[in-house]
Amino acid sequence: MSWLSSFWRTSIGGKMTMAVTGLLLFGFVVAHLLGNLQLLQGPDAINEYAKMLHDLGPLLWVARIGLLVVFVVHVVTAVRLSQANKQARPVPYASEATVQATMASRSMVLSGLSLLVFVIYHLLHFTLGVTNPGHFAMKTSGAGGFDVYAMVSNSFANPAIALAYAAFQLVLFLHLSHGIQSFAQTVGIHHKRYTPMIKTLSFLLALVVAGGNALLALSVQVGLVEVAR
């Protein structure tokens, strides 16, 4: 424990904490997308999937708490590092220029904080049922329990909600397109041949993940998914 906390406090230890927690979050986002793509297969698939997850019982809670810890560590470390970075340059340049840093890399704190806002809204919406209680309360007779299909399709039938979800995928795309290749550099993977490939892969993975999520968000609007009554 004391080894971990002293490692975390160093500059490179902090960077590596961002990298490892970031990659774990990315892993979660991929799994989350793969599971939710079942929405496109109709009510039975997604509702069975939701029931399976719920039936995990204590295991589900282990996963939830683990995810929460990873998320909190990612955010807390981000705040610590970005404050140190601010303090490292007390007087800004009168004339500032950027030579090769990408827009995505320069907006990591902003995109990250936007994701934090989004995640909170997303949890209030679909996990806690605060923002649209009517959709949340829908029950199904089929798989027994919550009707996830009805909840999601009714929510995304609202163009404002669908567009908001889709817009946040742009932010996720930005964060991940820098984040994935940044992970490699931070943990010490740098190679003449592979680094350019990793950068391309980072862009493509971010595009696929954010694109997949956006597709689900817009699925009702474009007629891929029917609204359950």
């Binding site: 160093t10 500059s11 490179i12 902090g14 960077k15 590596m16 590092l81 140190a84 970075n85 303090q87 490292a88 340059r89 950027t98 030579v99 090769q100 840093a101 990408t102 890399s105 320069r106 990591m108 820098h178 290749q181 940044s182 550099q185 931070t186 943990v187 010490g188 993977i189 740098h190």
Partner: peptide, 30 residues
């Protein structure tokens, strides 16, 4: 401050030292 892998350093280094050295340091420190 802490590196965020934006590589502005590499762009201005008069000796064009590559950011590979930062990855080397990260690995060595770990």
């Amino acid at each position: 401050g802490n590196c965020t892998n934006q590589y502005e350093c590499e762009a201005v280094c008069p000796k064009e030292i590559p950011v590979r050295v930062i990855a080397d340091m990260n690995r060595e420190f770990l």
